[in-house]
């Protein structure tokens, strides 16, 4: 199907179109816009709208009672608390791994670099049972940590943390690594020639440049961790009020055919994710600005 190049199309004049384009001679604008919006609406927007509409069956008082029930509150505390700690651990070790991958040469570097993405590619259920096997009392790690040190990881809140650290690691490495790679050495040379010690150069020259990317990675890892289900439920033990994550609360309510209750809790999580998405967008904009400014 040929798309005629009318003078209007050439000048980008498309009046009466809310997505008005300014200038492009390339055809297919209306077709790709229509298809993209249609598919997006069908697959993403209508189902999300369903959550909002279903929740509106509740009065605000009922909604509030559901989403602040003790068991639900305990799950927020665990889900959000463990996610923040996991993202912080990932920020520290992710930065370190990115640094080592960019700056040093060591045997097996290619393999390490490729395997950093493992949590993206490995199905969460597989990660879940593998971590459980490792950290259970008779597991490779569990026999020392639980057997010798007496710290229970599998089937306890600490297990949730372990699973969330696993799934969040690539986010920090992969946001920080390209920034480190593109960094010119002039800044560090200038700092060194002005008498800065290596730590000072890192603290006052490099860290401010890396900070937006690091925070973006942190936020991405956090966002992913809050909604994570598959890798957590095997290792968590799922004890109500102790090691029950919020997504599991939704599943439990669904299994009891409490659709409205499940949806109310889902809405709280959705709203939180949307706010986080906005924060991440702002962080990414800041990141690209600060990189542009450092050149």
């Amino acid at each position: 199907m040929a798309i005629a190049l009318t003078p209007n199309a050439l000048l980008g004049r498309r009046r009466g179109n809310s997505f008005r384009r300014s200038y492009s001679v390339l055809p297919g604008f209306n077709l790709s816009l229509g298809y993209t919006l249609g598919y997006l609406t069908l697959i993403v927007l209508i189902p999300i709208a369903a959550v909002f509409l279903k929740t509106s069956e509740l009065s605000f008082a009922e909604f509030w009672k559901v989403v602040t029930a003790p068991r639900v509150l305990a799950s927020y505390k665990l889900s959000f608390g463990a996610s923040i700690i996991a993202a912080a651990i990932n920020a520290v070790f992710g930065l370190m791994l990115a640094w080592v991958l960019v700056r040093y040469s060591f045997p097996g570097k290619r393999i390490v670099d490729a395997l950093v993405d493992l949590p993206f590619a490995l199905p969460t259920a597989v990660a879940g049972i593998a971590l459980t096997a490792l950290y259970a009392r008779n597991g490779w790690i569990g026999q020392y940590v639980e057997g010798v040190l007496g710290i229970k990881i599998a089937f306890a809140p600490a297990g949730v943390l372990v699973a969330l650290v696993f799934i969040g690691l690539p986010f920090v490495v992969r946001t920080v690594q390209p920034i480190l790679e593109d960094l010119e050495t002039e800044l560090e040379e200038a700092a060194a020639s002005l008498g800065a010690r290596r730590w000072q150069t890192f603290r006052y020259v490099l860290l401010p440049i890396l900070l937006p990317a690091l925070l973006t990675g942190f936020a991405l890892a956090f966002a992913r961790a809050v909604g994570e289900y598959g890798s957590v439920i095997f290792i968590a033990g799922n004890i109500p009020l102790v090691s029950e994550i919020t997504p599991l609360i939704i599943i439990t309510k669904l299994e009891q055919y409490d659709y409205v209750g499940a949806t109310a809790v889902a809405l709280v999580m959705l709203l939180f994710s949307f706010v986080l998405l906005l924060v991440i967008n702002a962080l990414q904009a800041w990141s690209s600005r600060s990189i542009g400014g450092s050149r």
Partner: peptide, 14 residues
Amino acid sequence: SVSPVIVGLMYMLV
């Protein structure tokens, strides 16, 4: 940014 569990729930609702 949507939890997988919520994805399933949304299609249940529809």
